[in-house]
């Protein structure tokens, strides 16, 4: 069985980014175009492409997975854990919580951007966040 995914909050994520982590946004391109994390080290690999592109996820630096609310990114985190990645974590609350904290974003989130049942509470995680 996989280890419980490590969950981090936006504040911890910002600190990790400052320490060399990369932000991996697994939302669809249209969502990212409309509303994005405004940080230098962010890469977009939609969840639907992750199986084919998981080799693009670096193994030599910490990776924080993000999405709209933290559900799809949790799936991505577990998928990478399954493939042997150990330095991966999930940012609970996603870009919604990130922007609510006043952290930098570009654009505006569409009201109906969560149309795929991604808004249920994040479960099955170990919260190590400070928030």
């Amino acid at each position: 069985m996989l280890e419980e995914a490590k969950e981090v909050c936006p504040t911890t994520t910002r600190r990790l980014l400052g320490e060399g982590a990369i932000l991996m946004d697994v939302r669809d391109r249209s969502e990212v175009t409309a509303f994005a994390f405004d940080v230098p080290d962010v890469v977009n690999i939609p969840l639907s492409e992750l199986e084919q592109r998981c080799s693009e996820v670096p193994r030599d630096r910490p990776v924080v997975f993000v999405c709209d609310t933290g559900v799809r990114s949790l799936k991505a985190t577990y998928f990478l854990q399954f493939h042997g990645y150990t330095n991966v974590s999930n940012m609970g609350g996603g870009v919604v919580k990130w922007s609510a904290k006043g952290f930098p974003v570009k654009g505006q989130r569409a009201a109906d951007s969560c149309s795929t049942g991604c808004c249920s509470p994040t479960e099955g995680t170990t919260t190590t966040s400070c928030c």
Partner: peptide, 12 residues
């Protein structure tokens, strides 16, 4: 039904 258990099989 648990995501963690499902992902333990690597099924996306």
């Amino acid at each position: 039904e648990e995501l963690r258990d499902i992902m333990g099989y690597g099924v996306m």
